[in-house]
Nucleic acid binder design. Sequence first.
DNA 1: GCATGTGAAAATCTTCACAGCA
DNA 2: TGCTGTGAAGATTTTCACATGC
Lengths: 207, 207
Amino acid sequence: MRYRKIPDETIRRLPVYLRGLLSLLQEGQKRISSHNLANYLAIYPWQIRKDFSYFGGFGTPGVGYDIKNLIKQINKILKLDIVNKAALVGVGNLGSAVLAYPGFAIYGFNIAAAFDKNPKKIGKKIKNVTIEDVSNLRTLKKRKIKLAIIAVPGDAAQLTATALVKAGVTGILNFSPCRITVPKRVKVISIDIAIDLARLPYYMPAG
Amino acid sequence: MRYRKIPDETIRRLPVYLRGLLSLLQEGQKRISSHNLANYLAIYPWQIRKDFSYFGGFGTPGVGYDIKNLIKQINKILKLDIVNKAALVGVGNLGSAVLAYPGFAIYGFNIAAAFDKNPKKIGKKIKNVTIEDVSNLRTLKKRKIKLAIIAVPGDAAQLTATALVKAGVTGILNFSPCRITVPKRVKVISIDIAIDLARLPYYMPAG
DNA sequence: GCATGTGAAAATCTTCACAGCA
DNA sequence: TGCTGTGAAGATTTTCACATGC
């Protein structure tokens, strides 16, 4: 296989595949064909094969894919094959939900620190994580936490991002409804829960 | 302008433009050029002009765009020019955060009903919304609520979706980490907060 | 026979460059 | 002059079809 740039869309789909494969593994399945996996995920088999082909292909012709191996390979590609420690900034309604969310574990994430600026919250423990004052953000470098989740109100988002970058963070999941500006070497992925709802009426039949 | 299919990507960007324009309006601005709006949103001007061109264009050559008018036009395209009532199903950690989230209002959304299956929660009021038993879901048709947000645990997501569709819902924002199957006429947009975090390490420098 | 992996074709989306209007 | 709107070019992504290997 010649080298070609791996499409961002392929990377976006890998966690989806991973989630499905982990479910299938738990159901006791050992092997699966692109056809059956596609069926399971409600997509098309050639999409799956093409995506894997960018990495050289992980299957056996005439047989299919070994689920355990496939999971291992995807985890390696996405760098999820180690425990990724993450920090949460902003323990309001949304932040608390993030802290309690059970879904991070399957991808090997561990929310290892939480920060807030409200003195009333500092020192409290949620899910075994003690909430610290935001001034402690600079300790992240020493603690080797490179991943952060921003769940503060919009007007504090940029300030928080800047502090995180200063503390050595290179990946940010931004839940605030604001664009944040960071150096190019830092990757930001934003989720604005309202903005996704906002395009739903467009697709709905009138009346 | 000849008719051409409007790209989904264009529709995905319209709420982003809308959010920026509403901010600018609040700052007291009346007019803006594609160049300045692009700068504000950290994208490119031709993208903005192209997106609007699919609808015939909303600007004046040599001048730019009238912000108020542009907002009105986008709202109309996205069918946000009326109050869209939405129902929330699942008032756990994530559901409570959704209920308290202030960001829906700018797009004209109103979370008008909330449902849970936990008897302890039923009857409680959060943000002026009284939590009802999920068996009440079938009243949605009568209440003309066509939009729903699913924030139940994964294993209840499909059941909830099926009940919603039966109750006349045609648009679903799905926060559960599960694919849900619905008739083609129903539009589902899914947000899995863990799945977005899962592709962050890939883009981060090693070490 | 059966299912993968992959060039090539088709579709989609982005970027360019400039004509045309205020 | 300044900025929009848009055909055309370019880039990316999806889909196809089939050669190849088990």
